[in-house]
Computed example of a mutant assay.
Amino acid sequence: MDLLTQGLLGANLAVTGAQKHEIRLATGIGFFAGMVADADILIQSEQDPLLTIEFHRHFTHSLFFVPFGAFIAAVLLWPFLRKRLGFPRLYLFCLLGYSLSGVLDALTSYGTHLLWPLIETRVALNIISVIDPVFTLILLVALIIAFRNKTKTHAIFGLIIASLYLLIGYAQLQRAELTALTIAQSRHHEIERLLVKPTLGNLLLWRSIYEYGDRFYVDAVRVGFFSSPTVYPGESVEKFVKTNYLDRSFMGSILAGDIDRFSIFSDGFVALQQGRQDLLVDIRYSSLPNSTAPLWAIEMNPAQPDQHAQFRVFRSMSKTLREEFVALLMGSK
């Protein structure tokens, strides 16, 4: 999730292990430790644009890296806190703060390499968006009260409420997936792969992508808490096949390798942007939940197969797109 939420979760967790006189110190330590895992965003290369997306939320988010990540956080903080806290207590707070960084990201639609190095597959449970104001606010309010009152009870209570919110997200996901299956059945499609994920900042509006034949079908599903789901039919696009795009003699090239890397990152949900034969997009993400317009893609040049593909991001939204998203979210479209 976003850095703020990671820090808030880490702070609440650290507070649960603190004594009353340590609570405020543990808050800062846990907040810092909760964000340390995302330092992997600093792994970049000007020569290899895909290196960043390969290593963001990678080994630093693994459950097996938690003791080492906590130790790194403790070492970084030790020069500033050695006169106020012994290293064992500092490490404990860092361990608590760091402990669920990877798990939290695994609950999102982006996912993380939670079980690396045993399993290379990115775990993405799609229960919650990468940014969810309600979830963040729950953690923030709990932490503020715990900090002011110097009591861990409120932090624990906040973590319980946040967990219940995640359970609501899971229930919403099940309802959205069931609706997606119904959509496919109405089209007489037999789903080969299905992905349903929440849209940004909410548990009401979901994006459904399923594979049938040689195409991906994208739809929006609004799952109200007290109403029947609403379907907003979307677009479809032909799935990308590398052997149809590159000449056989280029299969061992740098570009072919980049296509494979991007396809693995996108879990195989890749297609050429309509009208752009040089843009390979990640179908999982779009500004609108029933659109195939990408949030990111790689720009390819088949005429130069020994050059790296360029990673492109398309995050700007026009006023029209924002209004349409809100209409879908509110169920007024």
Rank of each mutant, 00 (worst) to 15 (best):
G213Q: 06
I156T: 12
L195F: 07
M317Q: 03
L42F: 09
L255T: 08
Q172F: 07
I72W: 05
L288Q: 07
S228V: 11
E54L: 10
L8H: 04
R175E: 08
R222G: 14
P289K: 10
V75C: 13
L272R: 01
I209R: 08
Q307S: 06
A106G: 08
T108S: 12
Y232G: 04
T60H: 12
T112H: 11
F64N: 10
T179R: 08
L25S: 05
F80D: 11
V241M: 11
L288M: 09
L107H: 06
R84Y: 13
L329Y: 04
R84G: 08
P133F: 02
K333R: 13
M35H: 01
L200I: 14
A142I: 15
L77Q: 09
F265W: 13
L63H: 02
L107F: 09
S253N: 06
I53N: 06
D306M: 11
F216K: 04
A297C: 04
F93M: 03
G213I: 09
K333L: 05
L205S: 06
A293I: 02
I138L: 01
L181A: 12
P233F: 14
I161S: 03
G102K: 04
Q304I: 08
M1H: 03
P229D: 11
I161W: 00
E324G: 07
L328K: 06
R122E: 01
P79M: 12
A37H: 03
L280T: 04
L279D: 05
L9H: 06
L295F: 06
F93R: 01
A146S: 15
V36P: 15
A37V: 04
E177H: 06
G102L: 06
W206D: 02
F216P: 01
A142E: 13
F311M: 07
G252Y: 11
I119F: 13
Q274M: 10
L76V: 03
F68C: 12
N244M: 10
T292A: 13
V281S: 11
A293K: 01
N244C: 12
A33L: 01
T121F: 04
I156N: 10
P289A: 09
V223I: 14
F135T: 02
L77R: 07
Y170C: 00
A309D: 09
Q174D: 05
F157A: 15
